[in-house]
Design a protein around this nucleic acid. Structure first.
Lengths: 195, 195
DNA sequence: GCTAGAGTAGAACGTTTGTTCTGCACAGGT
DNA sequence: ACCTGTGCAGAACAAACGTTCTACTCTAGC
């Protein structure tokens, strides 16, 4: 299987290119970039990278990076004794926080949280909630509901009398919508910035 | 300038496509995606998006998203009745989550939070802390400190006897480092994903 | 009802795409 | 030194690319 080291170097250059432009170049540009004068060489390289799982192709035949494409050399992490388990699972598969939190950009809205009615759920005044606009919500979801023309963030719950919007702060009362319950969206993420 | 609303809808679909494949489709695929039967329509759209700063082109002529492409609208919470989209031109800003949370990418690390010792500060087990590696921390900062070779997330505080690492959970005791205090970094952001 | 403008369909175009083939160059093993 | 295999250069190819043009279809304003 060729020069694996060479391939790693090539992959690095492609990663750099992607970092600059946020998409992968065409075969001929890959050639320029890597110093390969012929497209057959590029073609062979791409095949190897695809086999190794670093790139893939979109429904049309374009090159697209896979999750593995974004893995960084482990050596880059000087791991001291018991490094705080660098968020390795789901997060490391994502290119960015954006990618991690938002699955469907067009349906997602960010909303700044006002008030402390959800403070016991770890949602503070000033935090940003990532809300996915959809009407179906499950019990237990934190939802943005529309009550009397006002938007409010609460946990969706229900009891014998019907749906209840539960705050997470003993100082607040549960809300029982009289006129049916309108759900604006479901909270899928939280972002907080310190200072 | 055409149908700005229509364009926003189109942009959303492109963002969704990008979220799926991590690169932008070709003109003809854009056409399929958006329901435009002709490439001239796509061409016009792309020109408008380029003018608005959402996309750009790479050195070869491929389409690439700009930073702006990743910005999402941030709405203030009690959004007045009516669709958020309409009212808040002036009020809302658009931010990119990564830019918002991470000022210095090379010095920032993401760490998954273990345990509930900070729960009263709204930091839950499983959350991801964005930590900026630096040694200077101010009193009151949430810091990642190294105590006895272990990393721990606590609020930095001090009293007559010296520095104290304060948990935010009555079930935990404050930590008084005997051997001097080593700060790994300062927590600058929090990310939580639901479900 | 008519006109003016904007936006799209559809086709034409030259260019570039990615694939595939052949032939050369350099390597290691025998 | 000889093979043998692998990888790259270079060219040929159909398909797809993005650009540009014209003509049609709407809508808004008069």
């Amino acid at each position: 299987m060729a020069h694996p080291n060479r391939d790693a170097e090539y992959l690095g250059k492609l990663q750099d290119y992607y970092a600059d432009y946020r998409n992968l170049p065409s075969y001929s540009v890959i050639g320029d970039l890597l110093g390969l004068a012929s497209k057959s060489a590029v073609s062979a390289l791409v095949k190897r990278l695809m086999l190794a799982g670093y790139v893939d192709t979109t429904p049309d035949k374009r090159l697209a990076p896979t999750k593995r494409f974004f893995e960084r050399e482990l050596a880059d992490f000087p791991v001291p004794a018991g490094l705080p388990a660098a968020a390795n699972d789901a997060m490391s598969e994502a290119i960015s926080i954006d990618d991690y939190l938002i699955e469907c950009p067009s349906a997602s809205v960010m909303v700044r949280v006002k008030g402390d009615s959800m403070i016991d759920a770890g949602i503070h005044d000033g935090d940003i909630a990532v809300v996915e606009k959809r009407h179906g919500a499950k019990l237990g979801d934190v939802v943005v509901a529309i009550v009397d023309g006002e938007y409010t963030l609460k946990t969706l719950s229900r009891d014998k009398q019907g749906y209840v919007l539960m705050p997470h702060n003993p100082a607040y009362e549960p809300i029982r919508p009289k006129e049916g319950l309108e759900i604006f969206g479901v909270m899928v993420g939280l972002i907080r910035k310190y200072k």
